[in-house]
Simulated assay, not measured.
Amino acid sequence: MIYTDWLYWLFVFVAVVTYYIIPHRFRPLVLVASGITFYSYYAGSYVFLLLLEAIAAFVLIHISIKKKKHWMYPAAVIGVVLVLGYFKYSNMFITTLNDLLGFLHQPFLPTAEQIVLPLGISYFTFELIHYIVERKRGSLPEHKPASFLSFLFFFPTMVAGPIKQFQVFYPQLTARFQLDHALIGVTRIGIGLFKKMVLAGTIDLLAEPVYSQAGIASSDTETLWIALIAYTFVIYFDFSGYSDIAIGTARLFGIVLPENFRFPYLARSIAEFWNRWHISLGYWLTRYVYFPLGGSRVPTYRIYVNLMCTMAVSGLWHGAAWNFVVWGLFHGLMLCVHRFYVKQIKTKLKPVPRWLKPGTTLLAIGITFFGVTLSRAFFILPVADGWKLVLRLFGLT
């Protein structure tokens, strides 16, 4: 793990000190240089791919605005999506196509084994799309190219987010050193490391039965439920730990990043869960997928389609395999059911007596947690194995 490497923390210290001792106008350059150095060390020559992609997108959107070349705006978006698609989804596409054409008794296309997914490219792509769209909309403050690159190559968020917004990030580049920022930053880093290395690492031992087909086959129903619940907490502590470390490191630079988790397992509905879980991703999906599809301003059946499509994109973003798509559709279905309940059923029910509300709140939390936990079967395993796990959980096999 990057964050257990002492050299990384020495790098952070040098970057932070350099950031504060130089004039404000050079700070973006420090962030660009540190980001490129960080990415080069951990991902090698792929840094040139990200640089080329960023520069090309910046030039295209600049020409689109200044020269009224409107076709360059969609070209920039499509370009960055195609880059992500090639590196992340080529093998998924080829494998699926070969499976569908299995009657030929030979691969229709060879699997591109040499394609390696560049570190953090999913986060990089989503932030770049955000920048392109908001720049086209005219909602970004005036800035120089170095500020744009510092936004994309801000190394604390390059590996696992949170997904930033340029208009929030950019004004903070002139902040002075404040002791409270540093203390908050160090504290958040400590909390994040504790979550990842102690809590996630320890609870992970309980989750081992659901990591393989053999473990599923050899475990009883009770053990599998314990393991899947444990995995649900492993995911939370591991991922929120990453976010804490990123948020804490950014604070050392005087930069406040968006919170990514707010006690998601206390959510009373699946809609509330997505307002508490990976919040920056939920915001991005809502603004750049759900709203462009029509959001909630369309006929009812279209709203459900929009929810399913948005969560399918969420699943694909998480991983290049069909089980992630199934996981996303599972959440989309839960969102549709929740919306139907709120719009068609809840409004017709009598108000809950005050003395019953604590009980109904606990029940709502329990139902939501149950649905989220069950969906993890398709997050951790291929579709067939995930389905076997679900059947075993309910004693059906």
Rank of each mutant, 00 (worst) to 15 (best):
M158F: 12
L104Y: 07
V305A: 04
R297Y: 07
L149M: 10
T18W: 14
Y86K: 05
K69E: 05
H24T: 15
F11I: 14
Y170D: 10
V81T: 08
T111Y: 13
G44C: 12
R276P: 05
K144F: 03
F26M: 14
Y236R: 09
F324Q: 03
K67H: 11
I132W: 02
Y211P: 00
L119M: 13
L84F: 06
Y236A: 02
V116E: 07
Y304Q: 02
L333H: 01
P171F: 08
V80L: 05
V352I: 12
A33N: 15
T361Y: 09
G79T: 10
H105S: 07
Q114R: 11
G248I: 07
K69Q: 09
P145V: 06
Y131L: 05
V326W: 06
Y242C: 12
Y41D: 14
L49Q: 14
Y3L: 12
W327A: 06
V313Y: 01
R27Y: 15
D220T: 13
A182Y: 04
L117H: 09
L266D: 05
A230N: 10
R354T: 13
A214H: 08
H70I: 05
N98H: 09
I216R: 00
A112S: 10
S122G: 12
T174P: 03
W274G: 01
F194T: 11
P258G: 09
S296Q: 08
E134D: 13
E222Q: 14
V47Y: 07
A384F: 01
Y41S: 15
Y42I: 15
T202M: 04
Y131R: 04
G371L: 12
H331G: 00
Q114K: 09
V32M: 15
G386F: 00
F154I: 09
E127Q: 15
A146F: 04
L281Y: 04
